[in-house]
Write a protein that binds this DNA or RNA. Sequence first.
DNA 1: CATGAAAATGGACTACAGTCCGTTTGAATG
DNA 2: CATTCAAACGGACTGTAGTCCATTTTCATG
Lengths: 200, 200
Amino acid sequence: MLGAQPPKERADAARNRRKVLAAAARLFAEKGVESVSMDAVAAAAGVGKGTLFRRFGDKSGLAAALLDERERDLQQRILSGSPPLGPGAPARDRLAAFFAAYLEYVLGHLDLVRMSETASPGARFRIGAYRFWHRHVAILLAEARPDADAEPLSHALLAAVSAEVAGVLRAEYGAGRAAATVTCLVESVSHQPRVTHGRR
Amino acid sequence: MLGAQPPKERADAARNRRKVLAAAARLFAEKGVESVSMDAVAAAAGVGKGTLFRRFGDKSGLAAALLDERERDLQQRILSGSPPLGPGAPARDRLAAFFAAYLEYVLGHLDLVRMSETASPGARFRIGAYRFWHRHVAILLAEARPDADAEPLSHALLAAVSAEVAGVLRAEYGAGRAAATVTCLVESVSHQPRVTHGRR
DNA sequence: CATGAAAATGGACTACAGTCCGTTTGAATG
DNA sequence: CATTCAAACGGACTGTAGTCCATTTTCATG
């Protein structure tokens, strides 16, 4: 009953998907993500434009597909790696570890991630991977700060490590201060507030 | 020595600027910001496309120009209004007040602000107004949390009230929880952390 | 292996942002 | 008022994202 739920992929489709991903990876590496047009990718891959868009939806989808492997790696380390990134450590520590690792991931593929987040408006929140990060953070946050509204707060924290923001932080202050800032933010939020009994 | 530093604006330029802003405001209100093209604005204003772009740079510039008045109002309330938004209140309270007011401003003009932030990549951080908000937050933060790196942290906090994030927060959780979340975030960050002497 | 329907293909087509440059206009000067 | 030239103008032009649909390919079935 389990198994190949998605009703298979036709042979020509698989072949073309590989051709496109290979061509896109090469072109992006050569000329930079920004300056490669979808026409150029289609031409280099030897497929029609329609094929390209049918398969990947838009430019952000193509970028997301290229990031997929790296993403899965980080997801695995979260789900079953060693603490504090993986299970076993206190929620606060796991949050800090996740944000540090995620920031490193984003900065390591900045242009691709930016493209995957900004090609179409709101793209960031529709990507499957974002749901995963959001869920992960929300669960940890609910544990570390049971008094807070974990789901929306998770969006708010993740905003600080979007490609645009992470890129500006590194460009203006350097990778070290960027990382320290994210850590500071996350630690500030993941501690229970002092009780503010009585006086305002 | 003070005064008209910018060497004046020619009469035709001023006339056209007014025509464009009026036409854009009308069209945006009628059809929604997203679905109005720059061609349509130029046609409705009765000016050429070149004029439109010469004056406003790009679509995000046009949106920013339309927001200008509302923005100045908020800036005035911050610089010389009554506390806690204006001067006089403790930094922590001013931060909370600013973020609440800014969130309300963003949500009140969501489409325009989104356009001003996302029309071109990185547009958000180049807009003059962003510099103002960033500076304001950084100064207050430096006072409330002298141990933190205020400038980058200010970017990180402002990320939570970008049009994209604010829009998602309201769409998914409603305006009330969105506001509470931003307040929670800001209050968490603007309190000195407990000293974590010794362990870990 | 023949067949036929669903899936995939490719490239012409549309719509839009943004550029370029020859022409027009405003206003400062004598 | 005539002259002059920098500033502003406008619309044709370019490059790109994304759509559409007539044609081709795959593969399950008999």
